[in-house]
Design a protein around this nucleic acid. Structure first.
Length: 108
DNA sequence: GCAGTGACTAGTA
DNA sequence: ATACTAGCCACTG
């Protein structure tokens, strides 16, 4: 299940930082499958406890959903986290999560 | 198994 | 800068 790995990676994204789908996908072991990451995240939202809002696209923008207003919530949450939105987008150069040690701590 | 869809990304014009 | 195309692959009917 994509969700399980995506869950683990997203859960490691620190507050005040954001990660891209491709980044999460790669760390989760699904490099190149960014799309499936987004798909999996949608399922994770149904479950709670995952900072899914810290996952955005490579443009630094929150990706629009199909029917929900979750993207508005996502931006709000990110602003609360300390993310700075400029022209409706995030400065990835500053706010992008740079996992020096993606599995730091080993494995819990 | 086939076709359609989707919270994506990179390339080309 | 935007618009369009192609590739990616899991989920659903």
């Amino acid at each position: 299940m994509l969700g399980s790995e995506v869950y683990a990676v997203v859960a490691r994204i620190p507050p005040g930082k954001v990660a891209t789908y491709g980044q999460v996908a790669e760390l989760a072991g699904y490099a190149g499958r960014a799309r499936q990451v987004g798909y999996a995240l949608a399922a994770l939202i149904d479950d709670a406890g995952v900072p899914w809002h810290r996952v955005i696209n490579t443009r630094g923008q929150v990706s629009a959903r199909s029917h929900t207003k979750l993207h508005e919530l996502q931006r709000h949450l990110l602003e609360c986290e300390g993310i700075v939105f400029v022209n409706d987008r995030v400065d990835l150069d500053e706010s992008r999560w740079q996992p020096d040690e993606p599995w730091a701590g080993g494995d819990d």
